[in-house]
Design a binder for these strands. Structure first.
Length: 438
DNA sequence: GCGATCAGTT
DNA sequence: CACAACTGATCGC
C-alpha cells in the first residue's frame, strides 16, 4: 500500500502536499483553474502571479513560503495514522520571478529539488541563495538532488547574465537608428529588460498581458504598451522569426535580439576556446570560431537561404536562465549529494548529470550505473532516463542511498523509493513515501 | 468544457 | 544542430 507524500512540480497524482518551483508551463502540467487536490506551496511572487496563469484558481489552496528560512510542516501520512513531520526551505533559484529550489528535511533525509535554476558565481544577488543553502546544510550532505540538468555538459559554457546583458547593450548602441525587438517568454528576463532601460535611459514596450505581469512584479515606470515612446520592444519569443524582422525592416530598420536560443551549444567542446560571438554575420544561431569555422559554424544560408538578409539583423546572445556546466558543478561541490537525478533528459548530448559532473560517489548505485551504462552503450546515457522508458514507469530503488542504515531512511520504515519525472511532458518529481506496513 | 497528448514554432 | 517555453490541433470523455 502506498500513496504520495509530497510532489514537486507534479500535480496529477495523489499527494499530501504539492510544491511549485515556478510558473513556467513545463512545470505546471496538471495544474488548472479547477485544480483542487490539496495545499499548494509556493513563493509570494508565484502566488501573486497565479491568477494570471490560472484565472479562477482557488487561492485559498495556496500556502506561501518565505525564502531562506525553514518551515516545519506536519502532513497526514499517506498510509498510516501517524503524521509526517518535515521541514522545507525554499531557496531563490534565480531562474525567473518567484522561482525557488526546495530543500526538504525529513525521515527520508535531505532532498534538494532544484527546479530550474541559475547559480552564478559572481554578483550580489547570488550571495543570499548560496548562504541560505550553506546555512541550511550546516556541513551536511544532501542525500538526493533532483537537478536542473538542462545544460549539464562541459560544452555548455556561457557567461553570467550581466556579461550577456552588456553584450545586448553593445548591440543596441551600435545600431543607434534601428528599432530593437527582443524575444522573451511570459515570465523571465525582466532583469535584462530593466538593465537595458536603465543603461540606455529608455522605456521598453511590452504587450498588454506582459505589462500586467510587470506591474504585478512591481515594475511601474519602465514598461509601456505605447509604441511611440520607445524604439526597444520586447515581444513573445514564439511570434518572432526572421520573417518578422524582414517584415519590420520593410517599414523601419530593425534588429532582433534573442537572449537565449543556444548558440553556444553548437560549439564543440574545447576548453581552450571561449568565444561569445554576437556578430550578426556569424548567424543568429551559429557559433563561428575564428580560425576554425569548419568545426562548428552554421552558415546563415544553411538555416534558411531566403532570409539571409534578416539573419544579418538577428543577434543571439547567450543570456541563459539555466545553469552553465560550471555552475552546476559549483552547486554540486557545495551539496555533495549521495545521489542525483536529472529532471530533464531531452537533449541527445544529455545524460545523467553525475556522468559528467563526477559528483556522485562511485560507491553509489547511481554513479556506478552511469559509468557502466555509458561504456556499454558507447554513449553516456542511463537507461532509466531515456525518452522511451522514462514515460510511465516506476524506478524503484533507482536512487536509494547505498550508505547509511541499509537504505532505511528514518525510524518509521519509510523509504524514499520512487522517482517519477517525465521528460518534456513535465519536469517534476513525485516523492513517494512507501510505508512497509506489515 | 477539460485534461491528455502530439506536432509544431523560435 | 536543437533547448526551453510556448501555441495550437486533435482526441476521448
Amino acid at each position: 500500500m502506498e500513496s504520495g507524500l509530497i510532489s514537486v512540480d507534479w500535480f496529477s497524482g495523489d499527494s499530501r502536499a504539492y510544491f511549485l518551483t515556478h510558473l513556467h508551463s513545463d512545470h505546471t502540467r496538471g495544474l488548472s483553474s479547477s485544480w483542487n487536490r490539496g495545499p499548494l506551496f509556493c513563493t509570494r511572487i508565484t502566488a501573486k502571479l497565479f491568477p494570471i496563469k490560472f484565472p479562477g484558481f482557488d487561492l485559498s489552496l495556496l500556502r506561501i513560503l518565505d525564502t531562506s528560512t525553514w518551515h516545519c510542516l506536519s502532513l497526514p501520512s499517506p498510509s498510516s495514522c501517524t503524521g509526517h513531520m518535515l521541514h522545507v526551505m525554499p531557496i531563490d533559484a534565480r531562474h525567473c520571478p518567484g522561482s525557488v529550489m526546495y530543500l526538504f528535511r525529513g525521515e527520508f533525509g535531505r532532498v534538494l529539488c532544484t527546479g530550474d535554476f541559475r547559480w552564478e558565481l559572481t554578483g550580489e544577488d547570488a550571495v543570499e541563495p548560496r548562504e541560505a543553502l550553506l546555512r541550511a546544510l550546516n556541513g551536511r550532505r544532501v542525500d538526493t538532488v533532483y537537478l536542473d540538468n538542462t545544460y549539464c555538459h562541459p560544452s555548455h559554457d556561457f557567461p553570467a547574465r550581466l556579461v550577456a546583458a552588456e553584450k545586448v547593450i553593445d548591440i543596441i548602441l551600435s545600431h543607434p537608428n534601428h528599432d530593437v525587438i527582443i524575444g522573451i517568454d511570459s515570465l523571465g528576463k525582466e532583469d535584462l529588460l530593466v538593465y537595458i532601460a536603465q543603461k540606455l535611459n529608455v522605456k521598453i514596450w511590452v504587450w498588454p498581458e506582459r505589462l500586467q505581469i510587470m506591474h504585478l512584479l512591481g515594475f511601474d515606470d519602465i514598461f509601456t504598451t505605447r509604441t511611440s515612446l520607445t524604439r526597444v520592444r520586447a515581444v513573445p519569443r514564439y511570434s518572432f522569426s526572421a520573417d518578422t524582422i524582414d517584415a519590420l525592416n520593410s517599414i523601419h530598420p530593425t534588429i532582433g535580439i534573442m537572449p537565449s536560443g543556444m548558440p553556444w551549444a553548437s560549439k564543440p567542446y574545447d576548453k581552450n576556446q571561449k568565444v561569445y560571438d554576437c556578430r550578426p554575420d556569424s548567424s543568429c544561431s551559429s557559433f563561428k570560431r575564428s580560425g576554425n569555422e569548419k568545426a562548428s559554424a552554421i552558415k546563415p544560408e544553411q538555416i534558411d537561404g531566403s532570409v539571409k538578409g534578416a539573419q544579418r539583423k538577428l543577434f543571439s546572445v547567450p543570456y541563459s536562465d539555466h545553469c552553465s556546466f560550471a555552475e552546476i558543478q559549483a552547486l554540486l561541490r557545495l551539496i555533495r549529494p549521495f545521489n542525483m537525478e536529472g529532471i530533464v533528459s531531452s537533449s541527445p548530448c544529455y545524460v545523467d548529470p553525475s556522468y559528467y559532473s563526477g559528483f556522485c560517489d562511485d560507491k553509489t548505485e547511481t554513479g556506478r550505473m552511469n559509468k557502466e551504462q555509458g561504456e556499454r552503450n558507447g554513449r553516456p546515457a542511463r537507461a532509466i532516463l531515456t525518452k522511451s522508458s522514462f514515460k510511465r514507469s516506476n524506478y524503484s530503488n533507482c536512487y536509494r542511498r547505498k550508505e547509511g542504515k541499509n537504505n532505511k531512511l528514518g525510524t518509521l520504515g519509510a523509504y524514499m523509493s520512487r522517482l517519477k519525472a517525465v521528460r518534456r511532458f513535465r519536469r517534476g518529481a513525485k516523492i513517494v513515501d512507501t510505508i512497509s506496513a506489515s
